[in-house]
Structures are given as C-alpha cells and as structure tokens.
C-alpha cells in the first residue's frame, strides 16, 4: 500500500506535483499515467525519499521511506537511467546492494537469472545496452523480495520480447498480492497491463479508477450491426432514440444512448442479426477526454515555420 496525502512539490511558483491524494492498493497493477512533464517521476522520487515534498506526505506500508528499516525488503524501485557505476560488474553492483540491506548473497545470482542477465553477470555496467540496464534495474528491485514495487517507465529501451516479459512479470507480481505502481506515458501499454489507473496532468489528479470503469464511463460508444433487414431494423433503433447511419456495405453504424438494448430490440422485433459488435473506447480517447488535450508540451505540425522577421 502506498499512500499519498496532499503531496505537493513546487519549484518556485511552478507546482510540479499539486496536492496529490491517492492510495495505491496491493494485489493489482496500478498504472500511473500522464504526459511528459506531468509530475510522475517527481511523485515517485518523493515516495522514495529522494526528493523532499514541499507539502503533504507519502507513506509506504504506513511509514515514510526514510523511516523504513532495510527498505529494500519492503520496496523495490526501478528509476530511469543507470543505477550503478559503469566500472562495476553487474554481480558486484547487486552484491553491494544486497549487503546494504543484509540480504542473502544467494539472491544475486537468483535475480540475475530471473531477468535473463545470468550470462553477463561479470560484465561491467558501462558495456550494457539500454535494455540490459533496464533489466538490471529490475533485478535490483527484486533483490529484497519486496511487497511494494515502483517502476518508472520500465519498458523504455526494451525490445518487443522484453516488453512482453516485463508485462508478464508485473502481472504475476501483482497476482502474488504485491503493490505494483508503474508509470508510463504510453497509454496503449497500460491498456494491456494495468488493472487500475491513476491519471495526472500538470501535477494534478485527473482520475483514479479501475481500467474497466474508466473505459466504460468515458467517450461515446458505437456499435456495428449487420442484418438482412437493414432499413427496417434501422427504423426500430431510431425509434428507440439511437442514431443510425448506413455504411457502403449493408451494415448499420449505431451511436447514442442505450446501445446495450440492441440485442433485445432485435429479438423483440424478430430481426436476425448476423453481426453485433461494440467498439470499445481506447484508453487514448478516454485519456484525451479527461485531460482535454491538456499536455505540458504541445507540438506543432512540421512544415509551418515561423515567418522570419
């Protein structure tokens, strides 16, 4: 369990994180979403005691990070970038971390095997690719067998194989009852991984709800209906208050309220349906809906240079 209570970080007058109150619960993967610059990394650094909050507090299992005894036995964290000295070998790097928290040295080869780095244990970190560095960070986070995991953009730099692997890893860690908080600016990534979403924009909480609720509540839904008696059934649907357009092929595209009644209406009026499919809203749509396209760094299309003065 991670508890944020009015967590705020201000740099001068600019608030990177603004009065964030949210609980991250165990037993599920919680996606921490927001555009670049929304305050995700700052929030994670405050949870981990690396940055000092301007106001509010962050607690893990009821304590501030700095008050945890042997913190790696409770919390594992993967932050972006290198975690160790480029001149140190992977094994030595992990051995030092294990010693710092009184963990059994046997955990080092174990986690190296888990992340697939067993063969390069004696290689120096400076020779590691971005993907290998990311895996090493995960190895370090798993060393203490922690109940809480924080991962900051963990799929960065991983090949498709690695992305698949880390997705499975996060799901199985959550299934074991651990608290898993994973940040990302890649919405589609979260759609496949997270059970619950915490959305922030400009440091403020935008949404804190389950993936299913978020997708169900937001964004207009649409349905596609294929039936031999198109025009007749279209009339039925329109009487029920839905708007129907007929596509080039004999299919009805239906939008509006009460789409879940379509099947029942067809049954009542004796229409045969060859296809009834609902278009699920994508996370991207729900997200843009929530943030109102409120991105920190907005882009301009290429090819419209400013006039020279």
């Amino acid at each position: 369990m991670i508890e944020l209570d009015g967590l705020t970080k201000a740099y001068g007058s600019k608030k990177a994180v603004d009065n964030l109150t949210v609980n991250i619960r165990p037993g599920m993967v919680t996606g921490f979403l927001g555009p670049n610059g929304a305050g995700k990394s700052t929030t994670m650094r405050m949870v981990l005691g690396l940055d000092r909050p301007t106001a509010g507090r962050a607690r893990i299992t009821g304590r501030r990070y700095v008050d945890l005894v042997d913190p790696l036995r409770t919390v594992g964290a993967v932050l972006d970038g290198r975690a160790g000295h480029p001149g140190q070998s992977a094994r030595s790097h992990l051995l030092g971390i294990a010693r710092s928290n009184g963990l059994a040295p046997g955990r080092v080869p174990a986690v190296l095997e888990t992340v697939g780095l067993g063969a390069v244990a004696n290689k120096r970190l400076g020779t590691f690719s971005l993907g290998m560095t990311q895996r090493l960070g995960i190895a370090g986070a798993l060393l203490g067998d922690p109940a809480v995991l924080l991962l900051d953009e963990p799929v960065n730099g991983l090949d498709p194989d690695g992305v698949l692997w880390i997705r499975g890893l996060m799901r199985s860690l959550a299934a074991q009852g651990r608290t898993v908080l994973v940040s990302s600016h890649l919405l589609s990534e979260m759609q496949d991984t997270a059970d619950h979403l915490v959305l922030i924009s400009r440091g403020r909480l935008v949404a804190d709800e389950s993936m299913a609720t978020l997708l169900a509540k937001r964004s207009a839904r649409a349905a596609t209906v294929r039936t031999p008696q198109g025009p007749a059934f279209a009339a039925v649907l329109e009487r029920a208050g839905m708007s129907v357009t007929t596509g080039a092929e004999p299919a009805l595209h239906v939008t509006g309220e009460g789409l879940e009644e379509i099947g029942a209406l067809a049954f009542e009026h004796g229409h045969r349906l060859d296809e009834l499919s609902f278009r699920r809203p994508s996370l991207e749509e729900a997200y843009l809906d929530l943030t109102g396209g409120d991105l920190e760094y907005t882009s301009r299309p290429v090819g419209s240079p400013e006039e020279p003065t």
């Binding site: 009184g102 888990t114 697939g116 109940a147 499975g168």
Partner: peptide
Amino acid sequence: MSSTRTAPAPGRLPAMTSE
C-alpha cells in the same frame, strides 16, 4: 542475452519490516 519469461516463483509475501 537470453530473455526469461518466467516471473519469480510465487511465495509467501515477505515481512514488512526487518528485525
């Protein structure tokens, strides 16, 4: 570099604090 798809073996959750 080989990749591993298996997660660590599920076990009982570790103790919250160290003694």
